[in-house]
Each structure stands twice: as C-alpha cells, then as structure tokens.
Amino acid sequence: VKVFRALYTFEPRTPDELYFEEGDIIYITDMSDTNWWKGTSKGRTGLIPSNYVAEQ
C-alpha cells in the first residue's frame, strides 16, 4: 500500500470510480494499470486517475 495526496478534486463518471477532493489522502492498493489505480479514501474504495495524485 502506498500513500498519495489528491492534487485535484475528482468527480466519478462511473460507479467504479472514487470521488475525492483536493488534499485528500488516498491509500493505493493496485497500480497494475498505468492510468487508473485502485485506492481507498474516507472508507470508500474505487478507481482513481493516476495523474490526479502525488506520492507522499
């Protein structure tokens, strides 16, 4: 598990995607895809765009 911080707010387009706000901490559990990672924030899990976060 790696810890990342959201650089921007992300509004999901599908139920599989995770909503998060700029500054949120996201725990990444799967980075197997280059563009979409699986992450958890505020008790919810979903896909996030990798270019919206920076490693802490």
Rank of each mutant, 00 (worst) to 15 (best):
V1I: 13
V1G: 13
V1H: 13
V1F: 13
V1C: 15
K2D: 04
K2Y: 11
V3D: 03
F4C: 10
R5K: 15
A6V: 03
L7S: 04
L7T: 05
L7E: 03
Y8N: 06
Y8L: 10
Y8A: 12
Y8I: 09
T9V: 04
T9G: 08
F10R: 11
F10S: 13
F10G: 01
F10C: 04
E11W: 15
E11G: 04
E11Q: 14
E11C: 15
P12Y: 05
P12G: 07
R13C: 13
T14S: 14
P15D: 12
P15Q: 11
P15L: 10
P15A: 12
P15H: 09
D16P: 04
D16N: 12
E17C: 09
E17M: 12
L18G: 00
L18H: 01
L18R: 00
Y19M: 08
Y19Q: 11
Y19P: 13
Y19C: 09
Y19L: 05
Y19H: 09
Y19T: 06
F20E: 00
F20H: 00
F20N: 02
E21V: 10
E21L: 09
E22S: 10
E22K: 15
E22D: 05
G23D: 05
D24R: 00
I25V: 11
I26R: 00
I26Q: 00
Y27L: 12
Y27M: 10
I28Y: 01
I28Q: 00
T29L: 14
D30F: 04
M31E: 04
M31N: 07
S32M: 08
S32T: 14
S32I: 11
S32N: 10
S32V: 10
S32F: 07
D33W: 03
D33T: 07
D33I: 05
T34R: 14
T34Q: 14
T34V: 13
T34M: 13
N35M: 14
N35T: 13
W36N: 03
W37G: 01
W37E: 00
W37I: 02
W37Q: 00
K38W: 15
G39M: 01
G39Q: 00
G39C: 01
G39A: 09
T40R: 10
T40H: 14
S41E: 02
K42C: 10
G43P: 01
G43S: 05
R44V: 11
T45M: 10
T45L: 07
T45R: 08
G46R: 01
L47T: 06
I48Y: 01
I48L: 14
I48V: 15
I48F: 15
I48P: 02
P49V: 02
P49L: 07
P49W: 05
S50Q: 06
S50Y: 06
N51I: 09
Y52D: 03
Y52L: 11
Y52I: 08
Y52T: 05
V53T: 02
V53K: 01
A54R: 12
A54W: 10
E55K: 07
Q56T: 14
Q56K: 09
Q56E: 15
Q56R: 09
